[in-house]
Amino acid sequence: MATLANALTVSQSYPQWLQQQSDTALLQTRFNDGSSVAFSLLTHETSIAGPAVVESVQTEAKPT
């Protein structure tokens, strides 16, 4: 469902953080009804993911 490689840690300096940032660092969830949401690790914005984003999802969340 999510990759936490870009999650912020308290010991991270600004230059270290800056190096790791990319516009595409997203957490994504694809729901079991097919709809999808994304969270940008850069901007901290949440959005309903469009088809383009959905297609790039690597692993799906497990339905319960």
Partner: peptide
């Protein structure tokens, strides 16, 4: 409280990045 401060840390870094 640490979660709150971590959010602030992110906001600062993001803001600085916008100003680069």
């Amino acid at each position: 409280a640490a979660r709150y401060s971590k959010k602030q840390q992110h906001s600062l870094f993001y803001e600085l990045q916008q100003l680069e």
